[in-house]
Simulated scan of single mutants.
Amino acid sequence: MIQIAVFSDVHGNLPALDAVLEDMKKRGIRQKFCLGDLVDFAPWGNEVIEKIRDLNISCLMGNHDERIAFDFPVVPLSKHSEEETEARFIAIDHSKKHISEANKQFLSELPFHLKLNYKIGKKHWNIQLVHSDLSSNDMYLYESENDNVFMDMLKESQSQIIVMGHTHLSFKKSLDHSRWAINCGSVGRSKEENRMASYLILTLDEEKMTPEIIQLNYPTEETVRGIYESGIPDYYANFLKNEKTILS
């Protein structure tokens, strides 16, 4: 049996990342992979990057990482309210000013996607890791997506399992007896109602793969206070507090 942990979308939330890494440690999980988006929306972008680097955790380049690494312009998204659009511009500008040049260089060198192959007995498990899609790190794919979309991705990557992040909403979707599309959720900016830090454990043996979404409490008040005390808009602190005024 092999267990691997996959997580995504930390978004500068160091207290949430620490909680997730500590849970993995308690479970004895040594194989860890991050699907990107280390920065923006909470004030510990540098610290998050450095922890991922120092722990030698394999990490993909998320759309926010790419934007900060290469100073790409911010494009408004139609799904966002006027309030969130304004807050997003300010938060990303904050990262552009505060992420160190060495950490921007680290982000610029991250791989776009990663394919894993684990052999257990005679069984090969091919697992495709993406931030959001094989060709884009900014594609929103939800559980409601037609199964054929995920089946096409698996066919293109020649994998049985594809794991993604980006939407901040976890799901496990069995496409048939051996193929899966899974979203590991978000560590640092969950859009699920409970706002808990989420990550994925895949348990592999010769006969089957078992996916488990882990959701953890963490000291949210520490992150909220850190945002309030930074130049990041209060919008993101209020989001984590899950106040009724929050827009998704």
Rank of each mutant, 00 (worst) to 15 (best):
F150S: 15
M61V: 01
L14T: 03
G188C: 10
K244V: 13
E143C: 15
N146F: 13
T223R: 03
T245D: 10
G185M: 03
K119D: 12
N183W: 03
M209W: 15
N137Q: 09
L204H: 07
P76K: 02
F89S: 00
C59T: 12
I49Y: 01
F239E: 09
L55K: 13
I52A: 05
F239A: 07
I162W: 07
D23K: 09
L202G: 05
A197F: 03
S78E: 15
P15F: 03
F239R: 02
K97H: 04
M151Y: 14
N148S: 12
M139I: 14
M139T: 13
K79T: 14
F33H: 04
D205S: 15
A87E: 02
Y142D: 11
V6K: 10
D71E: 00
L247I: 15
R225D: 11
G231Q: 08
E101T: 10
E50F: 05
E206A: 13
E145K: 13
G36M: 05
N126R: 11
H80L: 14
D40K: 00
L21P: 03
R88C: 13
E83Y: 09
D40S: 08
T85R: 01
L134F: 08
A42R: 06
N217I: 08
T245K: 12
L200S: 05
I57Q: 05
Y235V: 14
K155E: 15
K119E: 11
G62A: 04
E82P: 08
A42W: 02
G62Q: 03
S170A: 13
P211Q: 08
K122L: 14
D133Y: 10
Q160Y: 07
T85S: 06
L116K: 05
N183G: 06
I246K: 08
I90Q: 07
D71P: 00
L200G: 03
